[in-house]
Write a protein that binds this DNA or RNA. Structure first.
Lengths: 341, 341
DNA sequence: CTGAAAGCGCTAACAC
DNA sequence: GTGTTAGCGCTTTCAG
């Protein structure tokens, strides 16, 4: 008897059916005050029998909590859909474990952010694809909901941040290669557009790479890389032109990865015999290549989950903002070897 | 003076500031009754000055409209994140043009669907990844919100459906190849898991392909294909074993595409000289390969947009359900040629 | 063209 | 351990 009609059953219907007051029903639902076992059972019975569902809007109005999380995942040029989706997946899954749903925004417009926040549609916001001087950050600070940034702006202004420690990741990749004896190392990085808008992760990765080559005394070159077959072979060729005896590549571009490898083969450079390759990408991408790649893992899904946990900590327990940079992990899988003689 | 404090300004504040009644403010906002120019301006001024935003929950409670669209995009095994994201993008963008936001569900659980619908969190639902006998469909029918399926179940039960006409797409690919003289054609399709759960698009594609080979009197073989380098080369090798003199391939697997092409090269089969390839995928994927591929376009984003339009038509204008299958379009790009002598 | 006021369905004091 | 009730902020009759 789950209410076939079109007028939804209300909390009062339940109360009447269970022979209790509305507040009692509310309290068995929220658990915010003790209810005797018998009443609780009568109420639960009535809820089931009537197929009762609290009205989200009414609840939000009365409690000023929406149980919805806003996720801003701007789909800018050259972002990798597949990786974004991994973040999103992590966010949605984690949100559900906190009883929250996710409102998805795919623009990077401040206006959208404000609409959702000031309109009280969400309890908190998670923002992806943060730039060094992201204009959203100062606005975010003024909102009444807490926000978590996936990425690290130059000035977090007291907001929570979470991300892979890309600077450490860049270093880690270089250090691994240096330890294998490599002295000429190239970074095949993000598309130019990503760099030009000063995307947080790309800049930090670059910084870590540069510091790595500097401190190991290696010779390093950097090439941006568009996310296409043409862009990848272009980048590889430029590297080979600038550093003909390059023996190691760090690749930070999931889409280009297959094409980078294909181009290397075409140019007669064997991996890992002639040239070692370290990828910075989600593990499944590294594993899905023809030759499983040694990689620094980008735990996109885990970062998404963490972002939600940090957001909920602020919503529920009113904890202070914090910044968490995950230590990178390198897994050897066979695309790296000692420098050729 | 956009209200720095933490208590949000209400419609009453605006009314007071503008020297009108609350209903007048409400009506300038909704446009549901004529307002004289002077009052309208006073109200709009007050709204701007106070930085007023209607409370979404209150509005939903009073009007029983949420201006939110539910999108169920189940992340099942072997779905292609990148393609899903294209659908999602289309849905979100289109929703915004109707003044709606999007609540994203990534599970395929009926319970989640019912929660957001019965809890009045959404005005309508859009469901992706529909199976032939999808258990969500009968439940959907009983909800008070309209739903649009992206895909085509065996029995739509009066729900709106929209999708590429995959059967026609399969036929179109085969017909194109047959016209070029090809007589032995293979379909490299979706991963086994996708077929096994009777995913709507995969089954219809297969059906179109089969009908195509049957009616053109060609010889056809079909291989499932896992979405990895290994899976792709495996599928290609199986095809070559079963049909050594195959001269044409239809590939319906975005992720495997690069690896299929790589494997063909490794086996010494040149595209399009020895073997023609037609891909069924979004245009950008076909264009992003080393050799731009002749393809039947999967207009994922456009389908997402259409789904929203159909949903809104039902919400706003209460139009009846309809099924729309988009006619496939084939674009020649150089991966297909006449059958070799 | 504008106002007054009755809810929408729920939560959270405040009572007992 | 339970009930009563005053809002939460908005929409929408009903009146004028």
């Amino acid at each position: 008897m789950t209410n076939g009609s079109d007028v939804a059953t209300t909390i009062d219907d339940v109360a009447r059916a269970a022979g209790v007051s509305t507040s009692t029903v509310s309290y068995v639902l929220s658990g915010k005050r003790p209810i005797s076992a018998p009443t609780r059972q009568r109420v639960e019975r009535a809820i089931r029998d009537l197929g009762y569902r609290p009205h989200a809007g009414a609840r939000a109005l009365a409690s000023s909590r929406t149980d919805v999380l806003g996720l801003m995942a701007p789909l800018r040029v050259d972002v990798n859909f597949s990786v974004i989706m991994q973040f999103v997946t992590g966010v949605v899954a984690a949100a559900r474990t906190f009883g929250h749903d996710v409102l998805l925004l795919t623009s990077d417009e401040i206006a959208d952010m404000e609409r959702v926040a000031s309109g009280s549609m969400v309890d908190a916001l998670v923002m992806m694809d943060i730039e060094a001087d992201d204009p959203r950050v100062p606005v975010l600070t003024g909102l009444s909901q807490p926000a978590v940034l996936i990425g690290l702006p130059r000035d977090p202004e007291g907001l929570s941040c979470v991300d892979l420690d890309f600077a450490a990741a860049g270093r880690l990749a270089v250090d691994h290669l240096a330890r294998l004896g490599h002295r000429r190392i190239a970074l095949i990085g993000s598309p130019r557009a990503v760099m030009e808008r000063h995307t947080s992760y790309a800049e930090r990765m670059l910084e870590g790479f540069m510091r790595g080559v500097a401190e190991t005394g290696a010779q390093g070159v950097v090439e941006a890389c568009e996310s296409s077959a043409a862009g990848a072979s272009d980048a590889v060729d430029k590297v080979l032109a600038r550093l003909p005896d390059v023996t190691a590549l760090v690749v930070h571009n999931e889409v280009a990865l297959p094409w980078v490898l294909a181009t290397l083969r075409e140019r007669g450079r064997l991996v890992p015999d002639d040239v070692s390759v370290v990828a910075l990408c989600p593990a499944d991408v590294a594993l899905g290549q023809l030759l499983p790649l040694t990689s620094v893992d980008l735990p996109a899904q885990a970062i998404g989950e963490l972002a939600v946990e940090m957001a909920m900590a602020r919503v529920v327990r009113d904890e202070p903002a914090e910044t968490r940079l995950l230590a990178p992990q390198l897994v050897e899988r066979g695309s790296t070897a000692a420098r050729p003689a």
